[in-house]
Amino acid sequence: MSALTRQRLSLALIWLALLTMPYWMNAVGGYTELGTRVLVLGLAAMALNFLLGFTGVLSFGHAAYFGLGAYGAGMAIKYLAPSTPLAIVIGVVLGTLAGAIIGALIVKLRGVYFAMVTIAFAQVFFFIAIRWNAVTGGDDGLTGWHRHALDLGFGKIDILNNDKAFYYLVLVLFAIAVGLMALLLRSPFGRTLLAIRENERRARFLGLPIEQHIWLSFVISCLFASLAGTLFALLSNFIDPHALHWSQSGNFVIMAVLGGMRSFWGPLVGAAIFVVLQDYVSSHTANWMSIIGLFFVLVVMFFPRGVLGMLRRKAKS
């Protein structure tokens, strides 16, 4: 089997699994909402990996844009109009705008310094969400709103009460987002990002505007992360400041690493493992923090290439 057929086969398998997920999720002990959560957090981790794995920039604050998307969506429905598409658009605009502004401030920084600044900036939004009680609901989160049925003009799709319908809405948006990211990575722009990752100095000598590329990559990554955020809020019809907390940022990074930073689909695999583990552990023990922490340590020590990285290495040897 040639490498290309193998690649096409695994791609087909991934989409087949995603398309049929709501129908076998219950049989393996899951539930539809868990599947939707995998998809949403997988999208966020893939968005982060656009930056982390394909541009080589260490962002550790993506919870900010994820959370802004979520709050944007929730507040749009609560205060503006009961429309799901509007909520998604507003959430994405909010998160992307914040990413564009913060990105411009930090684009000259590199490595650990970049990581530290992104972590710290993410905290601003966390504190705004906690302190601005009247608008955000403070520590208790934003309640009293829910997603609304999709009005297509000729008919309505009830995504509120029908779990599976909402899953497929998420899947469609996921497919568009992932397709766009894949296209971008194949374009000359995406190749340039890889060049920057591999050797920034050389790329600079070739006359490439490094800062502009990194900024744009950061903004694109924030855009898709905030899209994931809006879907996250719509999924649970609720959002609280935890989505903005730095621990959420860390979770996205561990998903990307666990699945394999160097592969396009890795973060989705990582998200699936992480979400299922978290769901299981937090319903079985009060000490889930220790277990998740230990999981971080073990992944870093023994599994740095991630699942797909290991598989690919085995396939080569």
Partner: peptide
């Protein structure tokens, strides 16, 4: 290794120590 890994490791340690 890449500084990413030590960051993730201490992140996990922070969880463990707090818990």
């Amino acid at each position: 290794r890449d500084p990413l890994y030590s960051l993730l490791l201490t992140f996990g340690l922070a969880y463990i120590l707090e818990d």
